[in-house]
């Protein structure tokens, strides 16, 4: 019997120092010389769902409330629920566990059809400003919040999880799988002068834990 191997849509040029096989994904835990930030982490292995229903506001994915307003997010228990529009919500599972898809026809597992990246650390938004006209540091918006718009000219869902006026903080980004390599190339190129380096899941998890404390 041939073992299943799930492949991330993005590849960094450097190899990770530590990896782990989880749910048929090879997960990079740590890279050599990750530096002091900013960091770019490949999170393709994190489970993501789309939820669509005419009464999506009444659904409770993972016991969390779906926000009432498009662009708003609920973040708790390592799970992020993002209201997209009147009928759609995206759900990101940021913890190590991969929960089973609920037994409801409105859910679609989109884990393997999308790129999923985290760009975080000092000056993370200085890199984002080079690649998108969206205003991530809008003082009127309170993190976490969802943008649906172009990043590197590619339609993306972007969730800002933390932001500060000095451009530090971080966000998650998803787009169609086919854009993976181009997206990585553009982001690393834009961040090269600011010391952007690939980071493993350990560093991402530490950041997420800090946000929820």
């Amino acid at each position: 019997m041939v073992a299943i191997k799930r492949q991330s849509p993005v590849q960094f040029k450097v190899s990770p120092r530590n990896t782990e096989v989880r749910d048929n994904w090879t997960v990079a835990l740590e890279y050599d010389e990750e530096g002091r930030g900013p960091w770019l982490a490949d999170l393709a292995h994190k489970t993501r769902w789309d939820l669509q229903d005419s009464k999506v506001g009444e659904q409770r994915p993972c016991d969390l409330a779906v926000p009432a307003t498009p662009g708003s997010c609920t973040f708790a228990n390592d799970t992020l629920v993002n209201r997209m529009n009147r009928t759609q919500t995206s759900v990101y599972h940021l913890g190590a566990a991969a929960p089973a898809l609920p037994d409801f026809a409105g859910y679609t597992d989109v884990t393997e059809s999308t790129v999923f990246l985290a760009l975080f650390g000092p000056k993370a938004f200085h890199i984002a400003e080079k690649l998108s006209a969206l205003d991530f540091l809008d003082p009127a918006k309170q993190a976490p919040f969802l943008y649906q718009g172009p990043f590197c000219h590619v339609p993306c869902q972007i969730v800002t999880l933390e932001k500060a006026a000095d451009g530090s903080g971080g966000f998650l980004l998803t787009c169609s799988r086919g854009y993976g390599d181009s997206m990585i190339h553009a982001i690393l190129e834009a961040g090269s002068s600011l010391g952007l380096r690939p980071a493993g899941e350990n560093r991402f998890s530490a950041w997420i834990r800090g946000l929820q404390e």
Binding site: P70, M84, N85, Q148, G149, P150, H153, P155
Partner: peptide, 8 residues
Amino acid sequence: FHRDGCGS
């Protein structure tokens, strides 16, 4: 049509 955004 919001092509690069929400698709509305």
